[in-house]
C-alpha cells in the first residue's frame, strides 16, 4: 500500500483565545465560581512549542487505542524533540509511516503498539527506519456525532 503523509496546509487558522478556568477537574463538574476568570488560553500556544518544527497528521488505524490515540485523531508532531524510550513517535519504516511507542532495549529498538491485537515490531539492522518526529499532543473529537 502506498502510505504517505498527505499535506494540507492550514492557511488561515485564526488565533482564538478562550477564557480559561484553571480548576482541577476530578470527574466532577467544575464550578465556574472557582476558577480564575482573568486568564485566556491560546490553543496554538498551548499545543505548539516550536512552530518551525511542528507538523500535524491525522491517524487512521487502531493500533494505539490503549495509549489514547484513536482512528481520526489529530497528532501534533514536533520534529525538534530528541527521541527517548517510551516516547510515542511517527516513524517511517520500510516504506510506510506508522505511529508507535518507541522501546529502546539492550537488543535494539522496538516499535510497540498500544493494542494487544497488534504485534510488536523489532527494528532490524536491514530496516529502512527513521524516527520522523515525536508526538507531543493528541487532539480528539469526543462528540458523539463525530
Amino acid at each position: 500500500m502506498n502510505d504517505q503523509i498527505e499535506l494540507h496546509p492550514i492557511e488561515d487558522s485564526e488565533e482564538v483565545t478562550l477564557r480559561f478556568f484553571e480548576s482541577r477537574i476530578q470527574a466532577g463538574f467544575p464550578s465556574p465560581a472557582q476558577g480564575m476568570f482573568g486568564d485566556t488560553i491560546d490553543l496554538n500556544r498551548e499545543l505548539i512549542s516550536n512552530p518551525a518544527s511542528t507538523f500535524c497528521a491525522r491517524v487512521i488505524g487502531n493500533s494505539m487505542v490503549d495509549a489514547g490515540i484513536n482512528n481520526g485523531d489529530l497528532l501534533i508532531i514536533d520534529k525538534s524533540l530528541e527521541p527517548h524510550d517510551g516516547d510515542i513517535a511517527v516513524c517511517f519504516i520500510d516504506g510506510d509511516f506508522t505511529v508507535k511507542r518507541i522501546s529502546i532495549r539492550s537488543d535494539g529498538v522496538y516499535l510497540t503498539p498500544a493494542n494487544k491485537q497488534f504485534p510488536e515490531l523489532h527494528v532490524s539492522e536491514e530496516s529502512n527506519f527513521q524516527i520522523w518526529g515525536i508526538v507531543s499532543h493528541v487532539i480528539k473529537n469526543l462528540t458523539a456525532s463525530m
Binding site: 500500500m1 502506498n2 494540507h8 485564526e14 505548539i48
Partner: peptide, 28 residues
C-alpha cells in the same frame, strides 16, 4: 487575524491496521 503557523495536517496510515482502515489509501 490570520495566525498562520503553517502547520501541515496529514494522515498517518496505521500500517498494521490497513485491513480496517479506509480504502482511499491506495490513491494518495
Amino acid at each position: 487575524r490570520s495566525k498562520t503557523l503553517r502547520i501541515y495536517t496529514g494522515q498517518i496510515y496505521d500500517t498494521d491496521a490497513s485491513e480496517d482502515c479506509c480504502d482511499t489509501s491506495n490513491d494518495k
